[in-house]
Nucleic acid binder design. Structure first.
Lengths: 181, 181
DNA sequence: CCGCGACCTGTCAACCTGGACATGTCCGAC
DNA sequence: GTCGGACATGTCCAGGTTGACAGGTCGCGG
């Protein structure tokens, strides 16, 4: 049940409504929804309700259009910390892209090459996009201030794409293709 | 519905029983179950049944203890290829470990440091393990033969761990810059 | 020959998930 | 002033997923 902890983590940045949280999960903007977890509002609203019942969050303030802003309670903060620091023996991973990578070798070499080339291109494009976003963040960031929230996650995405890109090129070489670019 | 495609991909390596496939998903041995997808036998058996109904697989042979070995049909192979080469607009990712990384900055600096140190250590250990396995594979592998099945996946795991390890160290440095430790 | 552990297949209930359905409100542009 | 689009919350259902329950077979060491 990690949705609960994802919500706790997002609320640790500050109060937010179900709508705000939904957007955080939905974005393909290098946020949590692209790399770590997804959830639709139809899961988020009931979960927020349950979390409120459990005393992990409270309705902080209400705004226009029935907006309910949720904030972490001390109990919620404790639970988040407990979950973050407790290293589980076995974590669940479910990643369609990685699944494809595992199965590359079930394809004919020509098909495998085409797939890998697609992956390499895609990574290069995402890398460029992400890098420009991060450069902007760094430019605005006073080095004496703490690292902005999400900067570490952004760096993670960057290194991730670099790794996959490098892997795709390496694999193409192994398969005996002419490496593009 | 990626379980179906995961099964098709595994069967592309050769016929297997539901039991074999269950072990492939369950292993924490650097296989598909560790990085890409998980499934219990309670999902696998019904799905194999449905896939047989759909003509994607057939019961290849029956063995002792009611063992049923499944093999891909041409139709199954076609469907696998279709899925592998079709780049979806938005893929689902659900990764508890990455989720933790996204939420590192919700922790107090001391806790964050402890978590990152744990991650770095864990990666280093996994890297060492994986590297020794892969060296063995490479030593037994005739360079004139095609790349062994799983070699590309293994390389992926390697680069993955390297990337995460590097990221954890980088993050520790960043956190160290703001709070003296 | 007997028992234990690995092999092997299955079902079921409870829960999670994603997409459709439903409803209504605020705000700025025209 | 009114209209369209973003804001905002919620329910429902079909289908996916998990973990428990269930039952049975082979092979080998003692």
């Amino acid at each position: 049940m990690s949705l609960r902890h994802a919500l706790l983590g997002l609320l640790a940045q500050g109060p937010a409504s179900g709508y705000d949280l939904t957007r955080a999960f939905a974005g393909d903007d290098g946020g949590i929804g692209q790399y770590a977890w997804q959830a639709g509002h139809s899961r988020i609203y009931p979960e927020l309700g349950k979390m409120a019942d459990a005393g992990l969050v409270v309705v902080d303030e209400t705004g226009p259009r029935g907006r309910k802003s949720y904030a972490l309670t001390d109990e919620g903060r404790t639970e988040l910390r407990r979950w973050m620091l407790h290293r589980p023996e076995r974590t669940t991973v479910r990643d369609e892209t990685v699944l494809r990578m595992f199965l590359v070798q079930s394809l004919e070499p020509d098909d495998a090459r085409r797939l890998l080339e697609g992956i390499a291109e895609h990574c290069a494009a995402e890398l460029a996009k992400l890098r420009s976003v991060m450069d902007e963040v760094d430019a605005e960031h006073d080095p004496h201030e703490p690292v902005p929230f999400g900067r570490l996650a952004g760096e993670y995405g960057l290194r991730q794409y670099e790794a996959v890109h490098g892997w795709a090129l390496w694999s193409l070489e192994r398969l005996g293709a002419t490496v593009p670019g």
